[in-house]
């Protein structure tokens, strides 16, 4: 029983991260092969928000060559990221349902990532100028993703799952 319980706990988490990582690596290979973009030097130490309680709203705004990370677990979370300048990275991971993400990047060679695991989530990305990459991965059902890109850019949306509601949560 304990082993089964462990499997039940570990497998969904493992699958989620595998899907996330494979999606990101696919995105990178497409970006590199397709548009021959230069690699972005990422600095991760400037801001880090970790929020486990609900509901919580984050806002991060930076200039060039910065990274903004938001992790939210639970329902009814909202994440807002605004980055102005070059070579920024915005990343939001939300675990739960009825969450909301807004990402805005203005400048060249920016990257925006959203990973949402759950149902009824919404993610929007706005990127202006050239060589930007926007990626939204949504696992669950009845999600909505919106990307607006002005300039030569790469857009990737992966929506996975047509699950149904059960008494214990969601199944995929």
């Amino acid at each position: 029983m304990k082993k089964n319980a462990k499997k039940l706990l570990i497998y969904p988490i493992l699958c989620f991260f595998l899907v996330s990582i494979s999606s990101l690596s696919t995105a990178n290979s497409i970006k590199d092969n397709f548009m021959n973009l230069p690699l972005v030097d990422i600095r991760v130490d400037l801001d880090f928000n970790y929020n486990k309680e609900i509901p919580i709203e984050n806002f991060a705004s930076f200039e060039s060559t910065n990274t903004a990370l938001i992790f939210q677990i639970g329902s009814l979370n909202e994440a807002y990221q605004t980055q102005l300048g070059l070579e920024n990275l915005a990343f939001v991971l939300q675990e739960g349902s009825n969450n909301y993400v807004f990402q805005y990047q203005e400048g060249n060679r920016n990257q925006a990532y959203v990973i949402q695991n759950g149902a009824n989530n919404y993610a929007s990305q706005y990127q202006y100028h050239d060589y930007n990459t926007g990626i939204i991965v949504q696992i669950g059902y009845n999600n909505e993703a919106f990307q607006f890109q002005s300039g030569g850019s790469t857009s990737i949306i992966i929506q996975q799952g047509n699950g149904w509601r059960t008494t214990s949560g969601f199944e995929y």
Partner: peptide, 12 residues
């Protein structure tokens, strides 16, 4: 679709 709605709008 069942997993949701995706909208991509790109212009250049």
């Amino acid at each position: 679709g069942p997993s949701g709605t995706s909208n991509v709008l790109q212009s250049k």
